[in-house]
């Protein structure tokens, strides 16, 4: 996949007009992480109801088009779903949302948002994320 195919319209759109960008003021869940090798930072804040349905989800931070677009798409996807579903979310699904192929270096960019939401969910559910290294 060449660069022109990688940075297709939809990626650029999510990069320049990220959905759900900001901070949920009355969030009951939040997590922040950064990629030390590139300095990308993502913070996700969410508000869930009693049964765990994600009522509101927002992300903030800074990063490349790939990390911003993937997190933007992820928040759209998760809104209205149960927080438990985050546990079974696979990285392949993120790549499917982005519908691009990525080199191992850029894969980290695409998966930073997923890692942050996983950490938030696992913390919330009081469980430990076993395969943390899969996302870094």
């Amino acid at each position: 996949m060449n660069a022109a195919e990688m940075y297709q319209e939809i990626i650029l759109d999510h990069y320049r007009n990220p959905r759900n960008f900001g901070i949920v003021k009355n969030a009951n869940l939040s997590f922040r992480d950064s990629n030390p090798s590139c300095g990308d930072i993502i913070e996700i804040t969410l508000l869930t109801d009693r049964v765990g349905i994600i009522k509101e989800i927002k992300f903030s931070g800074k990063g490349c088009a790939i990390s911003q677009a993937s997190t933007s798409m992820l928040t759209e996807y998760l809104k209205g779903k149960n927080i438990k579903e985050v546990k079974t979310l696979k990285k392949e699904e993120i790549l499917e949302m982005l519908s691009i192929e990525l080199s191992p270096i850029r894969l980290k960019c695409a998966l930073l948002g997923l890692k942050v939401i996983k950490m938030a969910a696992y913390n919330h559910l009081g469980e430990k994320l076993e395969n943390e290294n899969d996302y870094t």
């Binding site: 660069a3 940075y7 990069y15 590139c38 300095g39 490349c64 911003q68 850029r106 960019c109």
Partner: peptide, 30 residues
């Protein structure tokens, strides 16, 4: 423009060009 330096680096890498991007281990300066 508004192109993030990592994206720019990825694109020029396709042309065999090696440049660096990010905070250059100087985050306070950036």
């Amino acid at each position: 423009g508004d192109i993030h330096s990592h994206d720019l680096t990825s694109v020029v890498d396709e042309d065999g060009i090696a440049i660096r991007s990010g905070h250059h281990c100087a985050q306070p300066l950036i």
